[in-house]
Amino acid sequence: MAKIELNFRGMTCPMPIMKISIAVKKGAPGDVFEAVCDDAGFEADVKAWCKETGNELRGITKSGKDIAVTIVRK
């Protein structure tokens, strides 16, 4: 089970979701993805993406503009 860190700072819709999708597809079940993005729409997008694709959203933390999420691939 690998841990993959992703930095999406400076990216705007739809790129963070595209990059998450590509990264998670490349990974294996159980892999943990830690992504950080400073786009305000990222939180809602990640929630919807995880719900729709069936991947687990393990946590969201915010500090300043940064939104950090932890996703576990199913």
Binding site: M18, I20, E52, T53
Partner: peptide
């Protein structure tokens, strides 16, 4: 094309 990409990202 933004919506197309989003939907593709959602498989």
């Amino acid at each position: 094309f933004i919506m197309a990409n989003g939907a593709l990202a959602m498989n």
